[in-house]
Simulated scan of single mutants.
Amino acid sequence: HTAVLLAAAKWLSEHRDEVKPNVLFLFQSSEERDPSGASALIQQGVLDQVDAIFGIHLWQPLEKGQIGVCHGSMMAACDEFTITIEGKGGHGAMPQETIDPIFIASQIVGGIQSVVSRSLNPLQPAVVTVGKVEGGSTYNIIPNEALMLGTTRSLTEETRQRIYTHMQRIVEGVSASYGATGRMEYRWGPPPLVNDKIQSRYVEQVVKDSFGESVYATELAPTMAAEDFAYYLESCPGAFIFVGMGGEASAYPHHHPQFDIDEDAIPIAIELFVQLVLRYARQTG
C-alpha cells in the first residue's frame, strides 16, 4: 500500500498542471498496532484542511480486476478483551475443596457466545471470539487462575456497547455463581468504518468511468475485519475502497502463513488514486 501511494504521488507531482486541488498523501501510522497512530495524527491537525479522504486496500477476498466499495458501513469496530478468573486451586482428585477456574472459564466461553445469539439485534452483525485460554501447569492440579483473551467485532456503536455490557455481566455473574472472582479488561480499538455515501457514490462513478462498468463490484458486503482508517472517516468525509487481488497468484487469505500479494493489482490501485484526484478537481470546479 505504501508503494501504491508513493507511485500515485510521483505521477501527480510530475503532472501538476493537471492537478487542481491540493493533495495530502497520508501514510497510516502504526495502523496494525493498538492504539494506532491515526488518532494522534488527527489530533496534530493533519485533516484540518482536508475536504475529502480516500483510502485503498488490496483485498484478497475480492477477485482480481474488481474494485468495490460500500455505501455506508464497510468494516467493523475491533475491540479486545482479557478475562481473568480467580478461583481456589488444589488437587485434581479433590475438586470439592477447590473453586476450579478452568471449569468456570469454559462456562464463560459458552456464555459470552450467547451475547450474539440472544442479546443483540439479529439484523446487526457481531462477532465474539475467544482466541486464547490459559490456565494450569499439569494434569492433576487445579490452578488458582485462568485467563482468556479474545476480540469482539461490531458494525454499529450501539451493538458495540451492548456487547461490552452483556459480556461484563456474564463474566462477573458466572464467576460469582461458583464462588470465584471474574474480571474483564476491555480495550476499545478502531470504531466501525463507515463510508460517507456521497463520497462512496463518487468512487463508484470514477471506477465505472475509468475502468468500465464490469470492474465495479456491485454487491460488496461489509466485512467484520477492522481498519484504523475508520478514525479518519470520523473526522472527514471520505471512502475506503477494496481493490481485488484474489486468484491463482493470491490464493490464500490475509494473515495466512502462505499469503502472497498479486502485484498485478498494484497498477490498478495506483490508477484509481490518480483518477480520484483528477476527477475530484473537475467535480468541484
Rank of each mutant, 00 (worst) to 15 (best):
G244F: 00
S73F: 09
L278V: 13
P122Y: 08
G173P: 01
I53M: 10
A217M: 05
V243R: 02
F229I: 03
E219D: 08
H71L: 11
V215W: 11
E80L: 07
N121R: 15
E31H: 08
L123R: 13
G285T: 07
R16H: 12
D196T: 01
P237S: 06
G90S: 02
E32T: 04
F229Q: 02
E213C: 06
D209A: 14
G110T: 10
G92I: 03
E219W: 05
M224C: 09
H57Y: 12
T84P: 01
A105H: 15
A40Y: 07
Q96R: 11
G238D: 09
D260E: 06
W59Y: 11
P122N: 10
H254F: 12
M224L: 10
F81N: 00
I104Q: 04
G212I: 06
M74G: 04
E145L: 14
S36R: 05
V46S: 02
V243L: 08
H254P: 06
G285R: 07
R169H: 09
V243A: 03
M75S: 03
A281T: 04
N140S: 12
L47I: 11
V277R: 03
S235F: 13
T2R: 15
F54A: 12
L12K: 13
G110V: 14
D264S: 13
V274P: 05
P21W: 04
R162G: 10
G111D: 05
T165C: 14
S73R: 09
H255V: 08
D48Q: 05
E227Q: 06
Q49E: 09
G72Q: 01
